[in-house]
Each structure stands twice: as C-alpha cells, then as structure tokens.
Write a protein that binds this DNA or RNA. Structure first.
Length: 569
RNA sequence: GGGCCUGUAGCUCAAUUGGUUAGAGCAGAGCGCUCAUAACGCUUUGGUUGCGGGUUCAAGUCCUGCCGGGCCUACCA
C-alpha cells in the first residue's frame, strides 16, 4: 500500500470559481485521490482557500464587510460548492488559519537563520485616498510609449510594453481614481532564491517524468536573463500573516505582513495541521520525512499559471529551511479551458461558474465533460454543442442506457433478483479478458494522471457491456434457453456494480446511485475481473434505478447558451 | 521584444519519442437488433498531418523560414 499526499492549488477567496479553475486543479486532484482510495491506498487529499492579498481586501470593501468576516463567509460558500461537486477533500482549510500563521512565521525565522533573507529598502506608491500602498497593477495612467490612457503600472495592455509605475503619465489609483499619490520609502524582506538556484536546478533536472509544461516554465525562470531573482516576501497590508521571525518580533517590520504567495503554499502543510486538529490524525507522518513521511508519494495539481511558485518559490522555502520537509514528487499542470471562443474570466464574469453549473445540471455531467476534455496538451474549449453531444452520448446512451436495459430486462423476465440459473461460457470468458486488458490500461492511465486517456478507456469499458449484451442477446436466448439468458443477465447485473466501482473517480454520484440500485456496498477494486463479475450472487435483490442521466435537450442547450452568453451579473 | 507550448478527418483528440498502409470517439452514410433513455451493435465515407525548404534508407515526429492560436515575462493571485 502506498500513501498518497495530494494537494490541489488553493483557490483564491475572491469569489466563486469558474469551470476553468475547477478543471485545472481541484477536479483532477479529486479524480486521482478517489482512484487511489479506490485501489485501497491511504490518501490525504488537502485543499484550502487562499485568503490574503490586496484583491481580498478590495472584495471585502466592495461587499462592505470586514475582511476577516468576508473571508469566513466566502470560505463557507466555496466549501459548500466543493462538497456539492463531490470534491472529496480530507480537509478544506484556510490559509488564514492559526496553523498557517505559526508555520509561515516559523519558515521565515528558519530562512533568516540560514542567511536566506535580506532586507531591501525600496520605494512604493502610496495612495492617500485609499490609505494603502498600491501594487503596480493597481496604478493606472497614460502609457509613455503609446499614449493609451488606461495603462497599468506593470504593463501597458495596449502596446504590451513593460512599465514601472513611475513611468506613467498622470498616474492614478485604479481603486479610487485618486491622483493623490506619493512615492514612499518602505522596507521589505526578500527571499534569496538566487542562492538556491543550483539546488533547484538539480532538483528540477531529476524530475524527468513531469509534464513539459511544468519543467519548461521552471527552467525558463531559472535560466532566463540573470537567472532566478530574489523575491519580495512581505507587503504593506493589514490583512495577512504578521511578519515575525518564528515567535519573535521582527524589528523594522512592524505592521507588515507576508506576501500571499509566500504563505499560500505553506498552507499545504498547515492544512494538514488543521486536518489533524479536526480529526486527531498525525500530520507530521505526512509532511516530515524524519517522522514517517519518507515513503509518502506527494502529487500536486495546478493550472500553468501556478507553476513558478510551486517549482521554485515554495521548494526554495522548504530547501532553505534546512528541515526535512516532504518535497513534491509529481507536479501535474494544466493548460487553460476556454469558453465558447474566448477566455473564462473571473474578473469579467465570463463563462460558467461553479454555482451556476450546479443550478442547471448535476455535478457528474460537468465532471465527466471537464475531465474527458481536460486541457492536458494544450488549451481546450468548452462549447454547449460539444457538451450536450458528449454528455448525452457517453453518459446517457452508453452508460445510463446500459444500466437501464439490463435492470429492466431482468425485472421483466426474472424479477428484481439476480437470477441463478445457467453457467458462464466462452462469450463470458472473452468478455472477462477484454475487461482485464482494458482495466489494466485504465489503471495505467490513471496512475500517469492521463485524464483524457483514462476517460476514453473507461468509456470503452462501458461500451464492452453493450457489445456483450448485443451479441449474447438474452432477449432471444430467453425464448429457447432461459438458463443461458439467466447467466447472461447475471453477468450484466454484475457489470453494473463493476462499472460503479471503476467510474467512481469520474462520476461519484451516479456511481453511488448504481451501487445503491444494486443494493451493495462492495466497492472492492476489480484486480480480478472474473471474480468481480461474481460479486452479486444468485438471489441477490436489486432495484431498477431511475434514469441515471437525463439527456440534455436542444431547448435546454439553447436556453443555457443564451443565458450564459453575456456576463455574470 | 524574448522564452515556451500548439496547429493532424466537419468537431474533440491519439500516434509506443525517427519505423509497415496516420488511428479513436462524435457527427454523416448503410445494415442489423427490439431488452433499453428513438437507446444498442456491425460496416462504412472522410486526411497533401498549417505552408515552403532541408537532414535521413525512412519525417506527423528532427532542423530551418514563413503563417495562425495560446501562455509566461517575476508587485494580481
């Protein structure tokens, strides 16, 4: 048995996530976690909300609430939606937790002791009207290069020239529009990532099985220009983790907090601490290689935008601490999902958001489509036509109808009990061999986290059931040889249970319905398909389930297409 | 500007890392079946692998130049 530590990139607290966010991190992580659990491995699957930073403060202000209260509420909202999507976190934590405060401050202290922190005096733009320092991109003004009047302090969106806020003509706050700005001196801590460059480089080089997307981004940051740059890890904000050196105050850093990207990955560890507090578990057994975590396999899931922080900054934090923390073993990254010809956008409200998705269809519809079209090799695109077509064909026609035809046929001819007559012959043996081959392929693809290939293989396993029924034709054999028909039906009913077990990672709710209909809680992984097809014995009672997947009609598709064509209000 | 990814059938994607005649699903066409959610099965049409050069016994795969799409470029997260 392997022990799998699995983390999904932690979603930002600022609002409800869209389907593009979901498919890039939480959903594939959930599939992997469910698969490993299904195979009998020990899993700790962690996620959390990422709560610090300027956008959280602004969102809270917009909502007219204290930021702590806003975050607490949004955490509950996100937790509820995650639960309804079937995301099987062992713990859904918060980066603002006391555990993360302590641990983040601890890491900072260790890094300081190791000589990996330096203090930098710098100048930042301060807005009197907003009573806050402004990050570069929260300053707007006229671009000195092209004259665009809504250029941001980091880059002009019009001519793509990179800018410094002081380059802008007539700079103003993007928050309030105020021009009452001042350049102030301030002091910040920098993590000396450059000192760890060679260590990080070797570490990345040792990861030959990571997606190209992952390693190429890391390599670029390591070797581009002057190489890996030191990074500021503190900010002049109110909301965040106060800068401390372990448990001690940090002279000169009063009133400052750690940068959200410094504390967010540390939450992966702190989250295990939150889990331990909630459940009585032993979190160090998962995170400290000197305390039992040496044999843990750690896998991270994230969108490509998160890769630099997970391949460089966070590893630098861990390596620099000099302590035996568990490092990531595999980092699965995803491209982006586009929406009907453009990008999903949280800030612009474009696309389908998780709450809206659940309002119109059960989670499994979305899970299946998103996972079977996951943006693994390049960006992929959601269209309503493709969604309707894929879901109707795969879930309703191939799987749902299979369950329906076999259970209804049995009820009509033998009653709602697994028939006991007849024996399995050559056709059944052939089916078992087909399943054996396909299940082994499915397992390999899942182990490799190849989602689209896994989904295709799972679908092929469903199809095999229809092919078997078509050639066995129990509706014909029943007329001349009822015992043979009984054996064929018995096999078919057992396929329903088998399919539920195999499909659990992708469509957990439907899988649970299938198991309930078969009145079994036997979810043993089919290491031996032949044996698995005898799990439901003769005489075992079952129920004909309701339609597992109602089809999406053209009217529905058109309605949703137009409802979601504009922006979320 | 620089770096990286990407372009394969009408659509969504494969192709064991340079090796036989480029394969699946969907959509289309034909046939079969009648248990089932008008579902299922079988057969089948469809490709100058974005375009032009080059290397090689052999190129979707490697090199090069164009054309298109995307991401990143370090103070959003």
């Amino acid at each position: 048995m392997t022990r799998h530590l699995i983390t999904s990139a932690i979603p930002y607290i600022n609002g409800i996530k869209h389907l593009g966010n979901l498919v890039g991190s939480q959903l594939p992580a959930d599939v992997f976690a469910r698969f490993q659990r299904g195979r009998g491995h020990e899993v700790l699957f962690l996620c959390a909300t990422d709560e610090h930073g300027t956008p959280a403060e602004l969102a809270a202000a917009k909502a007219g609430k204290p930021v702590a209260e806003y975050c607490a509420e949004m955490h509950e909202v996100q937790a509820d939606i995650a639960r309804r999507f079937g995301l099987s976190f062992d713990h859904f934590g918060r980066s603002s937790s006391p555990q993360n405060h302590r641990l983040t401050q601890h890491f900072a202290g260790r890094l300081y002791d190791a000589g990996l922190i330096r203090e930098v005096d710098e100048k930042q733009v301060y807005s009197h009207a907003d009573a806050r320092f402004l990050p570069d991109r929260y300053i707007e003004g006229t671009c000195p290069n092209c004259g665009y009047d809504r250029a941001r302090g980091d880059q002009c969106e019009n001519c793509t020239k990179q800018l410094d806020p002081t380059d802008l003509i007539e700079p103003r706050s993007a928050i309030s529009g105020s021009t009452d700005l001042e350049v102030r001196a301030t002091k910040h801590l920098y993590l000396r990532q450059s000192a760890l460059r060679d260590d990080l480089d070797k570490w990345i080089d040792s990861k030959s099985d990571w997606p190209i997307l992952t390693t190429s981004i890391a390599k670029k940051w390591l070797h581009d220009g002057d190489g890996l740059q030191d990074r500021g890890i503190t900010r002049d904000l109110d909301w965040g983790i106060p800068v401390k050196k372990g448990t001690e105050d940090w002279p000169g850093m009063e009133g400052k907090v750690f940068y959200v990207w410094f504390d967010a990955p540390i939450e992966y560890i702190a989250c295990a601490g939150e889990w331990a507090e909630a459940t009585g578990g032993d979190w160090e057994r998962w995170w400290r290689t000197d305390k039992g975590a040496a044999d843990v396999r750690y896998t991270q899931f994230m969108g490509k935008d998160n890769v630099p922080f997970h391949t460089l900054s966070f590893p630098a934090t861990i390596l620099g601490s000099g302590e035996p923390w568990k490092m990531v073993d595999h980092l699965k990254s995803f491209n982006f999902l586009n929406y009907d010809g453009g990008q999903f956008s949280t800030s612009q409200g474009r696309g389908v958001f998780m709450d809206q998705a659940l309002d119109i269809l059960p989670a499994d519809y979305w899970r299946w489509w998103l996972l079977s079209h996951a943006p693994e090799s390049g960006d992929s695109e959601f269209t309503w036509e493709n969604f309707q077509q894929s879901v109707n064909k795969d879930l309703a026609d191939v799987l749902g109808n299979f369950v329906s035809r076999i259970t209804k046929f049995c009820r009509a001819k033998f009653g709602e009990t697994v028939p006991g007559a007849g024996t399995f012959g050559a056709a059944e043996t052939a089916l078992v061999e087909t399943l054996r081959t396909r299940i082994r392929a499915y397992e390999q693809h899942m182990e490799a986290m190849e989602l689209r290939k896994s989904a295709a293989e799972l679908r092929a396993i469903w199809v095999a059931g229809n092919e078997y029924l078509q050639s066995a034709a129990p509706w014909s054999t029943f007329k001349t040889d009822p015992d043979s028909a009984a054996a064929q039906v018995r096999l078919g009913l057992n396929l329903v249970r088998l399919y539920a077990v195999l499909s659990m990672p992708f469509i957990p709710h439907a899988a649970a319905d299938m198991l309930a209909a078969m009145r079994t809680d036997d979810t043993a992984w089919p290491d031996d398909p032949g044996a698995a097809l005898n799990a439901l014995p003769a005489g075992h009672a079952f129920t004909v389930p309701d339609v597992l997947f109602a089809k999406i009609t053209d009217d529905q598709r058109e309605e949703w297409q137009s409802r979601f064509s504009g922006l979320r209000t």
